[in-house]
Design a protein around this nucleic acid. Structure first.
Length: 391
DNA sequence: TCTGGGGTCCTAGGACCC
DNA sequence: TCTGGGGTCCTAGGACCC
C-alpha cells in the first residue's frame, strides 16, 4: 500500500510519411500531381535522367508488384502488394514509374534529420516511419502532444516538401493506430480513455501484428472488431491461438503495450534474392541459374562488407513455380563475408533442396551476424589457421 | 495474370551435453 | 534393461511488417 504517484500518461508518437515513394516522385515530376501514378516494377536500368514520355500502366508486362500508388490511383482500387498486371486492369491509364530507392533513401535521411533536430529519442521503423518519444522533448506532452506534432510536421515540410501523418498516444500500439486516423497530413491525439470510442470499433486487422492469417481466423471465430476481441475470455484466446499469441491478443485489445522506444538496433541477417523473368529449371537452365547464384553471393558479400558485418549461418531460399518456398541453411565454425565461402556453402545447401520443379526465385542469406571487427577477433582466436585466410 | 525484396520474430523438433 | 530433466544450438517453416 505504498503511496502511488499520480499516473502520468506516456506520450509516444508514430509518424508515417504520406504515400512516401509516390510523393517523392511528385517532387520530381510535379506535372503528375493529382494523376493516378503507380510505383513498381524492376529497377531503373541505369540513369535515364529525364523521362519525356511516361509509360502507361497498361503497357506493363512482367512479374512486378505495386510498391505504392498515389491517392488518385488508390481510388481505382490499386494498392501496394498488388500485381502490376492486375493493377493495369484496374487502372490502365495510370502512369507507371520504376522505383528509385536511392532517391527514397535520400529523402528518408532528410526527414529523419528534421525530426532528430527536434526530438532526441527516435526509433527507426523502416524507410518511411518512426516512433518518437515525446516525453523526451521539453513540453512535448502539452495538449496531449499536438503542438509538438504540428511543429514536426512543419519542419519536415520545410526540409523536404513532403507531408506526414502523426498519431500521439500512451504507447506505440495506439500511436500506430492513431497515425492512420487522419491521413494525409493529419495529427491525431489519443488518450487511454479513448479506447472504447476510437479503438474498439476498428477491425482486428488494423492491429500491427495481426496479419491476413490471424484476422481470417478471428473472423471465422466471429471476432471482427478490436472491441469484440476485448470481450473474449483470455483463456479461450489462449486455447485458440496458443499461450504467447493468445495472451498478446488480449493485451492489445485492451490497448496495453509496454514496449519502449528502441533508439538502436543491430542487423541479425542480410540477404539477396531475385525473381526470374521466367521460371528456370535446375538442369535445363543450369548455366543461367549458376550465374545468377554467383552474382547474388557477390552482391551479398559486397553488402556485408559495405555495412561492416560477417555471419556464420549461410542459407538459400527457393521458390518454385507453384509459389511454394523452401529454405536450407548451414552454420559454419567461423564468421565470413567472403563471396567464395558464401557461394560454396550456399551451393551445398542448394544440393539438399528438391530441384525437380522449375524455380521462380532464388535467394541467399547470411545470418548470425557480428561486426567485421568482432569476426576478425574471433578468427584470430580460432585454432584452425585456415580461417585466417578469409581476412 | 496471379503474387517483389528486404527484414524480424516465433515455434517445433532433433542433436547433444550434463 | 529401463528411465529422467534441463539447457543450448541448429534447422525449417511460417506469420508478419515496411
Amino acid at each position: 500500500m505504498g503511496a502511488e504517484l499520480p499516473a502520468v500518461e506516456r506520450r509516444i508518437a508514430h509518424l508515417d510519411m504520406d504515400a512516401f515513394y509516390a510523393s517523392v516522385e511528385l517532387l520530381r515530376y510535379p506535372q503528375l500531381a493529382g494523376q493516378p501514378v503507380v510505383i513498381g516494377g524492376r529497377r531503373r536500368a541505369g540513369g535515364e535522367g529525364h523521362v519525356r514520355e511516361f509509360a502507361r500502366l497498361a503497357s506493363y508486362q512482367g512479374r512486378g508488384v505495386v510498391t505504392t500508388a498515389t491517392y488518385a490511383a488508390r481510388e481505382f482500387g490499386v494498392h501496394s502488394g498488388m500485381g502490376l498486371m492486375q493493377a493495369a486492369r484496374a487502372c490502365p491509364d495510370a502512369i507507371l514509374l520504376p522505383a528509385d530507392f536511392d532517391e527514397y533513401r535520400r529523402y528518408s535521411r532528410l526527414f529523419k534529420a528534421a525530426i532528430a533536430a527536434i526530438a532526441p529519442r527516435v526509433e527507426d521503423r523502416g524507410i518511411d516511419e518512426v516512433y518518437i518519444d515525446f516525453d523526451a522533448v521539453a513540453g512535448g506532452a502539452e495538449q496531449g502532444g499536438r503542438p509538438l506534432a504540428l511543429r514536426i510536421q512543419r519542419s519536415i515540410r520545410e526540409c523536404t516538401g513532403l507531408t506526414c501523418s502523426i498519431g500521439v498516444a500512451p504507447n506505440k500500439l495506439l500511436a500506430k493506430l492513431a497515425s492512420e486516423f487522419d491521413k494525409p497530413n493529419g495529427v491525431t491525439i489519443i488518450h487511454a480513455g479513448d479506447l472504447a470510442a476510437r479503438i474498439w470499433p476498428l477491425p482486428c486487422r488494423k492491429i500491427n501484428g495481426v496479419g491476413p492469417k490471424a484476422s481470417a481466423r478471428l473472423e471465422q471465430l466471429g471476432v471482427r472488431t478490436i472491441g469484440e476481441l476485448a470481450r473474449c475470455e483470455p483463456r479461450w484466446l489462449i486455447e485458440q491461438f496458443g499461450r504467447h499469441h493468445g495472451h498478446w491478443l488480449h493485451e492489445v485489445s485492451w490497448g496495453r503495450d509496454t514496449r519502449d522506444i528502441s533508439t538502436h538496433s543491430e542487423p541479425v541477417s542480410m540477404s539477396c534474392e531475385t525473381t526470374f523473368e521466367r521460371d528456370l529449371h535446375a538442369v535445363r537452365d543450369r548455366p543461367e541459374l549458376s550465374a545468377v547464384f554467383t552474382s547474388l553471393c557477390e552482391r551479398l558479400a559486397a553488402d556485408l562488407a559495405r555495412h561492416g558485418y560477417a555471419g556464420r549461418t549461410i542459407g538459400v531460399k527457393l521458390r518454385y513455380d507453384n509459389f511454394r518456398s523452401v529454405t536450407r541453411a548451414q552454420t559454419l565454425e567461423f564468421h565470413t563475408a567472403d563471396a567464395a565461402v558464401i557461394r560454396r556453402t550456399a551451393g551445398q545447401c542448394l544440393k539438399r533442396a528438391p530441384l525437380d520443379r522449375r524455380l521462380r526465385l532464388l535467394g541467399v542469406r547470411v545470418g548470425s551476424l557480428v561486426s567485421a571487427a568482432e569476426a576478425q577477433a574471433r578468427a584470430r582466436s580460432l585454432p584452425d589457421a585456415t580461417s585466417l585466410d578469409l581476412f
